[in-house]
């Protein structure tokens, strides 16, 4: 079995308000899975449901093939979580917070702790309430990573980090991936997805719109096509598309069908000019959002 986390038909309602509906996902061991969507799309609801911080209305979450129960301490010790907003015990210093964290785990994690605090240049003498947003995030990263979990769940992990620490963080993620750690990476920053993620899931209004390898999503799914031909009207009808611009026998449209279908359709007509431009991840993301209304 290669999957470490399975989310099956996850639905969450807050009273009558929909949080997420019928989320189905499977995360493979050692992959970095990007989970993207704007604020309020249901990213945090999904994560909190997975972690059993909130109750699922229906559905199931499996960790290594076993139902992930809120009282399953073995499974919980294999998961590292970095929330988008970090709230820790204000009365403790960074050192005391890390000491407390160590005590929750049965194994010796002091070596990894030292490696991470050195690497992220974390000052252990300060009280957590005195930490800047960036330093608090660094502490959150150390807390999520230091017990060497099999699954890392990261919610908006780079917010507040300066570019140097951000790069260090991405290096850290790459090393974790090489070690076989699975990462569930929730963000609304598209460049991060294309930079480090293997697959991406797009969520909107509580529904998972698409799950695809990042490379495939960029390569195949969407292109901008400009066609100059006397048969523009027929081409539009044939491809069943809505052009984004049309004038003087030239149409520009978004193509979501595969290249083979596009070329075979266009081959039926005389084409004067043809430009096919690859869409960026931003365009793809916006396309899915517009398409789903």
């Amino acid at each position: 079995m290669n999957s470490i986390l399975q989310i099956k038909n996850l639905t969450k309602y807050y009273g009558k308000t929909l949080g997420v509906k019928d989320i189905n996902l499977e995360l493979d061991k050692g992959e970095i899975f990007g989970f993207i969507g704007p604020n309020g799309a249901g990213k945090s609801t999904t994560i909190r449901s997975v972690l059993n911080l909130i109750n699922k209305t229906s559905g199931e979450v499996l960790f290594e093939g076993k139902t992930l129960d809120k009282n399953d301490t073995d499974a919980k010790s294999q998961i590292g979580y970095l929330p988008s907003e970090i709230n820790l015990y204000d009365d403790l210093t960074v050192k005391q917070m890390l000491d407390l964290h160590e005590k929750f785990f049965d194994k010796d994690i002091s070596q990894r702790r030292k490696e991470l605090t050195d690497r992220l240049k974390l000052d252990e003498t300060k009280k957590t309430e005195e930490l800047s947003l960036g330093n608090l995030k660094k502490l959150g990263i150390v807390l999520a990573f230091m017990h060497e979990p099999k699954l890392l769940i990261l919610d908006e992990p780079t917010s507040g980090l300066d570019p140097i620490i951000q790069q260090e963080f991405f290096n850290l993620l790459t090393e974790e991936k090489q070690k076989g750690t699975t990462v569930f990476y929730s963000t609304h920053i598209l460049s991060e997805i294309s930079k480090i993620c293997d697959r991406v899931g797009i969520i909107k209004s509580g529904r998972l719109l698409k799950v695809e390898p990042v490379k495939e999503l960029i390569d195949k799914s969407l292109s901008y096509v400009t066609v100059s031909s006397k048969h523009c009207d027929e081409i539009i009808k044939d491809l069943n598309i809505e052009p984004t611009a049309a004038e003087n026998n030239t149409v520009i449209f978004k193509n979501t069908s595969d290249a083979d279908t596009l070329v075979k359709t266009l081959a039926k007509y005389r084409i004067d000019k043809l430009y096919i431009e690859q869409a960026s991840l931003e365009d793809i993301f916006l396309h899915y959002y517009e398409q789903e209304g």
Partner: peptide, 16 residues
């Protein structure tokens, strides 16, 4: 109230 439950809730400790 202090929102530290998001930390404590994911630690390997039973709610009981």
């Amino acid at each position: 109230s202090d929102k530290t439950i998001e930390y404590l809730g994911v630690m390997p400790i039973k709610r009981t």
